[in-house]
Nucleic acid binder design. Sequence first.
DNA 1: GTGAGTGCAAACGATTTGCACGGTG
DNA 2: CACCGTGCAAATCGTTTGCACTCAC
Lengths: 148, 148
Amino acid sequence: MVTGHADTEQQTWEDRLRAVGLRVTRPRVLVLDALRRHGGHRSADEVVEALRRRGTPVTRGTVYKVLADVVAAGLVMVADHGPGRAVYEIADLWHHHFVCRRCGTIIDVPCMEGDKPCLRPDVAVGEIDEAQVIFRGICDACRAGGPR
Amino acid sequence: MVTGHADTEQQTWEDRLRAVGLRVTRPRVLVLDALRRHGGHRSADEVVEALRRRGTPVTRGTVYKVLADVVAAGLVMVADHGPGRAVYEIADLWHHHFVCRRCGTIIDVPCMEGDKPCLRPDVAVGEIDEAQVIFRGICDACRAGGPR
DNA sequence: GTGAGTGCAAACGATTTGCACGGTG
DNA sequence: CACCGTGCAAATCGTTTGCACTCAC
C-alpha cells in the first residue's frame, strides 16, 4: 500500500500532518508516533516520559502544544476521565472507554456502529458530531483479584 | 409523604445524609440545597459563589470536601467535560449531557431507558455500574444565532 | 528569508492538603 | 467528650503562556 520501506509507517505522519495544514516537525512526529506505538491512552506527561526514555526528549510545554494542535486537526482524540486526567490517543477507530473505579485502567470498548457516533438522543438539542461514552465500574482483573 | 412543613424539602437531606453514614452539618446541607435549587450543573466555584450570595458562605476548600463526600456517597454525580471543568448535580434521575462546542452550554439529555445505565458494551470488560455519555456539537441556540 | 514551532521557565487556575478550632452524635 | 467536619491558607498538579531562538517551507 505504502511505497517505501518504513517499518513504522512513520512517513504517514508527514502526509497526515501536511494534509491538515500543519508543518512537519520533529516533536510532532515524535508525539504522534509515541501515541501510535503505545496503542492505548496516554496522558501528556506519559508522552513526555516515553519520549524522554526513548532518547528523544520533548519539552512538556511543547507536548501540550503539539497535542492541542493535532487534536484540533482531528488526528488525535482527547478524553477527559476526571479532573487533570486528560488522555490522548490516535483518532483512527471510534470507540468508547471503560474506566475501572478501582485500578483506574482504561479499556477500549468498540462502538457498535462503526466510525460514526453510534448514539443519538431522542430530543432535539443541536447538531451532534460526537458521542463520548465512559463506562465506569470494576474491571474483570480487579474482580478476579478478590473483593478488595 | 414527609411529616413536617419544610417547603424546600430540606429535611430530606438530613435523612439522606444519615442514610449514607454522613453527619448532618450546615455546609453539607447548604451545598446539597444549592445544587438542588439550581437544578442544573454547577462547578465547585459556582456553588461557593451561590452560597456566598445567599448570605450563607462556605469556604472553597470545604465545598470541595463536601462535594467529594457526597459524590462518594452517591448523592451527587460529577461529570467532567474537560480539564478543570468538573460539574456537579444531584443524582436523582439518570441522564446524559450535550455540550455545545461553541458556547459551552450543557443540556441534559434524558436516558432512554430510565434510571439505569441504558447502554451496554458488547464485550466483557467488567462490571459496569455507570454509563456516562457526553454528546458534543453545536446547540440549537448557537445555530440559530448564525454560522458564527 | 519569514513565520510557524520549539524550548525554557514562569504564570495560572482548579483542586488538595495540613493543622487548629468547633460542632455533631 | 471524642471525633468528624470546618475554616483558613499554603501546597500541589495539570495545563497554559510569554519570549527569544530555530527550523520548515
